[in-house]
């Protein structure tokens, strides 16, 4: 039985440990604290190990671990940290309501060279990301940094897939507006064309 336990441990480590860094990034985005994130990661992998029998091979292990991580965070960390409750920041409506002149800076013709475009921004990207309400931020980061599908994000955050779609769209619009405002402030961008 001891050998069985070791074998199960090795199997779990083989499947789950490659996502250690991803889980840490996700845990850090939840806790915003390195020490708390470490604790959360350890708790996540322990819970994952205990429920490894319920993991379905062939499904996305990373999404499975993220969901465990999120639940661990809710169970153990959120109560301690008592961060401000859901922030009702007014986000832009989905991109469908944007008009073309709102996207000037991001047009290919505005800044042709993408490397130059990317170099215009530094840590303000992260600052603006952290201004996002948590629910929107998580959906956006899971999509753009962790490459989860909308369905997997819906599973991790336990929200309908339509809500995922809406949050990602609105979060990107918010982010783009803030970046444009920054670029205009520093003269990287002319006033929008009318």
């Amino acid at each position: 039985m001891i050998r069985g336990g070791k074998r199960r441990q090795r199997e779990f480590e083989k499947v789950a440990l490659p996502y250690l860094e991803a889980v840490y990034q996700f845990a850090h985005s939840l806790t915003r604290d390195a020490t708390a994130a470490e604790d959360l990661v350890q708790e996540t992998f322990l819970h994952g190990f205990r429920s490894f029998a319920r993991f379905e091979p062939g499904t996305n292990c990373k999404a499975w671990l993220f969901r465990i991580c999120k639940n661990c965070f809710i169970d153990k960390f959120r109560e301690k940290r008592r961060r401000p409750a859901h922030q009702e920041i007014a986000l832009a409506e989905p991109a469908a309501h944007d008009s073309p002149h709102d996207v000037a800076m991001f047009e290919r013709n505005s800044i042709e060279n993408e490397e130059i475009f990317l170099d215009l921004f530094g840590d303000e990207v992260n600052r603006f990301v952290h201004e996002l309400p948590e629910d929107f931020r998580q959906a956006l980061l899971l999509c753009d940094l962790q490459a989860l599908t909308y369905e997997e994000i819906a599973g991790v955050l336990e929200i309908p897939i339509g809500t995922v779609r809406s949050r990602i769209s609105r979060a990107r619009s918010f982010l783009r507006e803030r970046l444009e405002g920054y670029a205009r402030e520093y003269g990287y961008l002319k006033e929008p064309r009318r």
Binding site: L17, L20, E21, Y24, Q25, H28, A34, A37, E38, V41, Q42, A95, D98, P100, V103, M105, F106, E107, R108, N109, E114, F117, L118, F121, G122, D123, V125, N126, V129, L140, L141, D144, L145, R172, L175, R176, L179
Partner: peptide
Amino acid sequence: RQAESVRRTKKLLWVKARREPVPPQLERR
């Protein structure tokens, strides 16, 4: 142009988002 702006926002986030350094002892722990 709108679609391009969406793509660039996504790419900007991918390139610029801060990746927290994983503590070296975490895997051992």
